[in-house]
Write a protein that binds this DNA or RNA. Structure first.
Length: 202
DNA sequence: TCCCCGATTAACT
DNA sequence: GTTAATCGGGGAG
């Protein structure tokens, strides 16, 4: 049995998605994200941002539900995908019970599975700038609006515990990228770059 | 209805 | 460092 064959891995339990959102953000670092489990594409999550329901005017949920953001108000474990700047898709992991409106944006990753197709989807010949941005990630994984509202753990998309232990000392945090409100909140989390160096070849 | 801005990216100078 | 591409949300008129 191949250790990293996605089909042999179990998706995260439902209870994972009801931990505090900030904790979920930290815990998503080092997890595997797999799309289309029959011909799988997989990445290792390295950078995320938390978006909260209260005291967070940068969050899409801040002004309440709209057609665009409705799945952000679905129950934890739902996939929230939206069109950003009219041309890129961004993917979130919804947290908290239905009606609350909290989520974690997946911003960056390393290739894990199906690297050839990840490169082809991005029209790239090498790994440079392959998955270092929320729009790049969705393009590489073929994630579009048809994934909005999907449940993690389905046949189409899953998050998988790879048994990689990211210790607190290996995590950095900063303000979130590309926002103009709530810029003081340190809700962006990423694996320290030198730790990524060490895990190259993963 | 009009207009500005946004959880972005790539291709410029 | 600057900017075009491109469209939905939301406030102003």
């Amino acid at each position: 049995m191949k250790l990293y064959e996605p089909s042999f891995q179990k998706p995260l339990p439902e209870s994972f998605y009801f931990l505090p959102t900030e904790l979920i953000a930290r815990k998503l670092l080092g997890k595997g994200l797999v799309v289309n489990r029959r011909i799988p594409l997989g990445v290792l999550i390295t950078e995320v941002e938390a978006y909260l329901s209260i005291n967070d005017p940068a969050s899409h949920s801040h002004r309440g539900p709209t057609r665009r953001n409705s799945s952000m108000f679905a129950r934890g474990g739902t996939c929230y995908v939206y069109l950003s700047y009219g041309m890129h898709y961004c993917m979130n992991v919804v947290t908290a019970p239905a009606g609350i409106g909290e989520a974690v944006l997946i911003r960056g990753a390393l290739p894990w599975f199906g690297t050839e197709e990840l490169l082809a989807n991005r029209k790239k010949k090498n790994l440079r700038d392959l998955l270092n941005g929320p729009g790049k990630l969705t393009q590489a994984l073929n994630i579009d609006l048809s994934f909005d509202g999907e449940k993690f753990g389905s046949e189409r998309i899953a998050i998988i515990d790879l048994g990689i232990d990211i210790r607190p000392g290996q995590i950095r945090h900063s303000p979130r990228i590309g926002i103009s409100r709530a810029t003081d909140l340190p809700l962006r989390f990423f694996i320290k770059p030198d730790c990524l160096e060490r895990s190259r070849g993963f």
